Structure formats: structure tokens, C-alpha cells
Simulated assay, not measured.
Amino acid sequence: MNFGQAIEALKAGQMVQRQGWNGKGMHIYLEQGRHLPLSAGIEKGTTRIYDPVICMYTAQGTHQPGWLASQADILAEDWQTVDG
């Protein structure tokens, strides 16, 4: 699928990846906005509101918020959904 279709799949709650990504298990997903109460610091006791963000599950097994597409990613036709 193309990048536009991959974005639509993200919006529908699916995870997607490029067929060409060679890192084990790498994929991206849409993290919906969150409301998190702060338990420390100057804003302790307040709630921080986060907007939705595209996150990447990395080859190292971590979650990286704020993934940005490269021009190659945007023009690629090898996007696919991920089971799981």
C-alpha cells in the first residue's frame, strides 16, 4: 500500500511497517492523546494533556514517540499492516 493508505490504517487502529525495514519487529502506530497526572516537579498535581502522536516500535524493543516520515517513506509503495 502507499503512504496515504498506511496513514488511514493508522487512523483505524492498525500498526504498519515498510516491507523494506530490516529491524526485527519495527512498526509504527498511532498513540491516541493522553491525560497524565503529574506527581512531581513544579506542576505536581496538575494533569498534562498530550495530543495524538505517531510512535515507532524500534528494533531495540523501545517505543519512540514523534516518528517522522522521510521522503522515501512518503513515496514508498511497500507499506503493509502488521498483525498483533
Rank of each mutant, 00 (worst) to 15 (best):
V82H: 04
G45A: 05
L68C: 14
I7K: 11
T47D: 05
Q60S: 13
Y57P: 00
L68F: 08
Y50Q: 04
L36H: 03
D78W: 08
E8S: 10
I74A: 11
P52H: 01
G41F: 03
T47P: 00
N2A: 13
E43D: 11
D78K: 09
Q5V: 13
T62M: 15
Q71D: 14
Y29N: 08
Q5K: 11
Y57E: 03
T62A: 12
A69F: 06
A9T: 06
A72E: 12
D78C: 07
A72W: 10
A69G: 07
A12F: 05
P65I: 02
W67K: 07
A59Q: 14
C55W: 01
G4W: 00
C55R: 02
D73P: 06
M1F: 04
G20E: 15
K11S: 09
G66W: 02
E43L: 12
I54V: 15
E31W: 03
Q80C: 13
G23I: 07
G45F: 04
Y57V: 05
V16D: 00
A76Y: 00
L68A: 15
S70F: 02
E43T: 13
E31C: 09
H35E: 15
A59R: 08
V82A: 10
E43F: 12
G45K: 08
V82R: 03
Q64V: 11
I42N: 13
E43Q: 08
